[in-house]
């Protein structure tokens, strides 16, 4: 198993799903444990390793999010008055994007992260999430539409600063 190539995308996915480095580390570790333990359900003849690991990471992340109460940070609203400093603006923009993505409905969030950030093909996302490809497309479209609305103010801000 090529852990060096699989670890970064899994970690990034887990981090973006949970917003926590510690949780992402736990999830990634659990992923590899699941694949390596003697009674592993992984079947190389049926599923590519990457797909299997993303599936495990997704389940672990959902399980963890279900237990975790919504924190004040998660609910923090994006400031309506961004800093005039460029660096500060980008920091705020990054936080705003993170919050906007995390506020997406669960199914849309997973699809967006896997499609946009990890650049998984739609068919592979469908296998990871065990849904139809058409459902993946639909969720991705809805997620992007939602994000365009949520981040519209920042888009204007970005244009102003160019």
């Amino acid at each position: 198993m090529d852990t060096d190539s699989l670890l970064p995308p899994l970690f990034r996915f887990a981090y973006r799903m949970t917003g926590s480095v510690a949780d992402a580390e736990d999830i990634v570790q659990e992923c590899f444990l699941a694949a390596l333990r003697p009674n592993s359900t992984y079947d190389a003849s049926r599923t590519p390793m990457r797909t299997y690991l993303f599936g495990v990471a997704r389940n672990q992340a959902l399980k963890l999010l279900a237990k975790r109460p919504v924190t004040a940070e998660d609910d923090e609203c994006v400031s309506d008055a961004p800093s005039p400093e460029r660096a500060a603006f980008h920091t705020q923009l990054e936080a705003a994007v993170a919050r906007a993505v995390r506020r997406l409905p669960e199914g849309q969030r997973e699809v967006l992260i896997l499609a946009h950030y990890e650049e998984l093909p739609l068919a592979e996302i469908a296998r990871v999430m065990e849904i139809e490809v058409t459902a993946v497309k639909s969720r991705l479209q809805r997620a992007r539409t939602q994000l365009k609305e949520t981040l519209a103010a920042y888009a204007t801000g970005t244009e102003r600063r160019r």
Partner: peptide, 28 residues
């Protein structure tokens, strides 16, 4: 869509630390 993609790309995720890499390699 392009503007949205650029905006989404502002959200950077950290890379896994060396300790985690070591732990995962040790599981092999």
């Amino acid at each position: 869509d392009t503007e949205l993609d650029e905006m989404l790309n502002q959200w950077k995720a950290p890379e896994p630390g060396a300790e985690l890499r070591g732990r995962i390699r040790g599981m092999q």
